[in-house]
Simulated assay, not measured.
Amino acid sequence: MAGCGVAASRLAEERKSWRKDHPFGFVAKPETKEDGSTNLFKWKCLLPGKEGTLWEGGLFPLTLEFSNDYPAKPPKAKFPQDFVHPNVFPEGDVCLSILNPTKGWRASITVRQILVGVQELLDEPNIADPANGVYETYRKSRKVYDQMIKEQTKKYAADKQI
């Protein structure tokens, strides 16, 4: 359980840093437990779609779940189940190298870097590392894929989230 103190203090620092300065349009805050206390190990986030992309106008819900081994191990990043994207597993888990302990994760990566990285992934999927069948649609029929993304962006329209 020794790692828990390290994880909790790092997450408290991340929260402080985020509250002082974060990218415009992003929301990230630890979950509030039923008893009113803060759960630093589970963050509820909203990622804005980038301007000039099919994702623009959307505010996409993402959960970050940190373990007691954080920052030695990356958090799990999860969109809602059945989120449409080539690098998101059907259960919602995000497939991104900086979230993979054996690929790109480093203990110095911050919550801010994770969220910006996931936002970039939305419009720039990694087709070399697909997580589901959506990548086939992306490769074979961009028109159909683009329509799927437009529908999803409507579903998560920013004005519905606030």
Rank of each mutant, 00 (worst) to 15 (best):
A28M: 09
H22V: 10
P48E: 04
L59K: 07
D82Y: 12
K78A: 14
K78G: 05
L40S: 08
A8W: 11
C95D: 06
Q113C: 14
L121F: 10
C95F: 06
L96G: 13
T38R: 11
A28D: 11
R106Y: 07
V111A: 04
W43R: 04
V94A: 01
F66A: 02
K42H: 04
A7S: 10
Q113L: 06
N87T: 14
D69W: 03
V84A: 07
G36F: 08
K76Q: 14
A77I: 04
K16I: 04
K20R: 15
W18C: 08
P125G: 09
K78W: 02
V88H: 02
S67P: 00
V6L: 09
W18G: 04
D93K: 12
A72L: 08
F41Y: 13
F79S: 01
G104H: 10
L62I: 00
G5R: 14
F24D: 09
W18M: 03
R10W: 08
A8S: 13
V88M: 03
G117R: 13
C95A: 00
S108Y: 13
R10C: 14
L46W: 13
W55F: 04
S17W: 03
E31V: 08
I109C: 03
D93L: 05
Q119D: 06
W55S: 00
A28V: 14
G52L: 01
G5T: 06
D82F: 07
H85K: 07
W18D: 10
G25F: 09
K16H: 14
S67K: 02
T102V: 10
P74S: 09
P23L: 08
L47V: 08
P74V: 03
G58H: 02
D21A: 01
E65L: 01
P125I: 03
Q119Y: 05
A12P: 03
K103Y: 07
G25V: 01
R15Q: 07
P30L: 11
R112Q: 15
F24S: 13
A77R: 02
E124N: 15
E14R: 07
N39R: 07
K50R: 07
V118S: 00
T32E: 15
K42M: 08
K29I: 06
V88D: 00
E34V: 14
L122I: 06
E34W: 09
T38V: 13
P71I: 04
K42E: 10
A72C: 02
K76T: 06
I109T: 15
L40E: 11
F26H: 05
N68S: 14
V94G: 03
G58T: 11
V118G: 01
L121G: 03
F79P: 04
G92V: 00
K20Q: 15
L122N: 07
T102L: 10
L59V: 03
G117A: 14
R112K: 13
N39W: 07
F60P: 01
A8P: 07
P23F: 08
V118Y: 00
G92W: 00
P80E: 02
L99S: 13
K20A: 10
P74W: 06
C95G: 11
A7M: 01
W105T: 13
L99R: 05
T63A: 03
L115E: 11
L64P: 06
